[in-house]
Simulated assay, not measured.
Amino acid sequence: MKTINLQVFFIALVIMFFIGLNAVAQVGIGTTNPNTSSILDITSSNKGFLPPRMDTTARDAITTPATGLLIYNIDTNKLNYHNGTSWQVVENGTGSYVDLTTNQSNIAGNKTFTGTITPQGRLMVPMGELSYFNISAPSLSLGAGTTGASGNDGMTKVNPASGVNFLNDSFDSNFTNSTSGTPTQAVTNSKLTYRGTTTRLFHIALSFSFTPGANADIFVFGVAKNGNVQDKSKIIIKSGSNTDNQSSAMHVALWLAKDEYIEFYVGKVGGAGSIFVKSFNFFAMGM
């Protein structure tokens, strides 16, 4: 009879323990006062938490891993967690460091590097280039000419019918073309259209050579964005003899968003005229 009473007492004690545990819904290890926001509070001043350790093969053999499941991968010496679809490395999460030892398809957010970065391959930045050279270039008619006012002001786009080559990385040369061009190709529309998805500040460099249609002609050269010549890009050149070749260059910084484009323009001051543009190199690099 006494044995039965002890068994009943023990069973009642276990039931009361689990009822109390379920009511509190908290467990403390190393503390009698677990944090109210936790289901499990492990407290220690000289020991750490040791999760299950396994290699990649054993990790991948886990059947239907739960979202949030955590293990330590002894092949990579990294914590891994399951996001409900695949295993991820804890260090690659938002707000932590970027692992540059593996391929990264998309690194979001601002990253600050305090050391020296030495690329082993290409440093991928958007770039585009139009180049042209023709010592026997045809005459370009400049219409009514420019007065020196702001904007387009009678200026004409430099757009040779042939002979312009295009070098591309995140650009194309035809506004109606939705894909980037091949690395080098001939074009018939001398514009650089940015196809990247991120708005960037571009350094634009333009060098060119020309022969004036008449002696001592004065020309204004400039870069147009979306068909509008940018005043800050303009330079004024007084030419010499119409039998001489002259050259010059300009630099300007412009913001470009997706599908925005830049072009090379020229105008003659003081009335109609012409010019022979014999070469140009039109280059844009994003920063």
Results as ranks from 00 to 15, higher is better:
residue 1 M to W: 08
residue 4 I to F: 09
residue 9 F to I: 05
residue 11 I to E: 05
residue 13 L to A: 11
residue 14 V to L: 08
residue 16 M to S: 07
residue 18 F to V: 03
residue 19 I to Q: 02
residue 25 A to G: 10
residue 26 Q to H: 09
residue 27 V to K: 05
residue 31 T to I: 02
residue 32 T to N: 13
residue 34 P to F: 04
residue 36 T to D: 11
residue 38 S to V: 03
residue 39 I to F: 12
residue 40 L to F: 14
residue 40 L to D: 01
residue 41 D to W: 06
residue 50 L to R: 07
residue 51 P to G: 04
residue 55 D to Y: 10
residue 56 T to F: 15
residue 56 T to D: 10
residue 57 T to R: 08
residue 66 A to H: 10
residue 70 L to P: 01
residue 71 I to L: 13
residue 73 N to Q: 09
residue 73 N to D: 15
residue 76 T to L: 14
residue 78 K to N: 15
residue 89 V to D: 12
residue 90 V to K: 12
residue 93 G to C: 10
residue 94 T to Q: 14
residue 98 V to K: 13
residue 99 D to M: 06
residue 104 Q to I: 13
residue 108 A to Y: 14
residue 108 A to M: 09
residue 111 K to N: 13
residue 113 F to V: 07
residue 122 R to Y: 14
residue 123 L to A: 12
residue 124 M to K: 10
residue 126 P to H: 14
residue 128 G to C: 10
residue 132 Y to K: 09
residue 133 F to Q: 06
residue 136 S to Q: 12
residue 137 A to K: 12
residue 141 S to P: 00
residue 142 L to P: 03
residue 142 L to S: 02
residue 143 G to A: 01
residue 146 T to H: 00
residue 150 S to T: 14
residue 152 N to L: 06
residue 156 T to E: 05
residue 164 V to K: 00
residue 168 N to K: 11
residue 168 N to M: 09
residue 170 S to K: 13
residue 171 F to N: 00
residue 172 D to S: 10
residue 172 D to G: 07
residue 177 N to C: 06
residue 177 N to H: 14
residue 177 N to W: 15
residue 179 T to P: 06
residue 180 S to Y: 11
residue 188 T to F: 12
residue 188 T to S: 09
residue 188 T to K: 07
residue 191 K to C: 03
residue 192 L to C: 10
residue 193 T to L: 04
residue 193 T to S: 06
residue 194 Y to S: 02
residue 195 R to I: 12
residue 197 T to P: 00
residue 197 T to Y: 13
residue 197 T to A: 13
residue 202 F to E: 02
residue 208 F to I: 02
residue 217 D to A: 08
residue 221 F to R: 05
residue 223 V to F: 00
residue 226 N to W: 01
residue 227 G to V: 00
residue 228 N to S: 12
residue 229 V to A: 00
residue 230 Q to C: 00
residue 230 Q to S: 04
residue 231 D to Y: 06
residue 232 K to A: 14
residue 233 S to H: 00
residue 233 S to R: 01
residue 248 S to I: 04
residue 250 M to Y: 04
residue 250 M to A: 01
residue 256 L to M: 13
residue 257 A to M: 01
residue 257 A to F: 04
residue 258 K to Q: 14
residue 263 E to R: 00
residue 265 Y to Q: 02
residue 268 K to G: 00
residue 283 F to T: 03
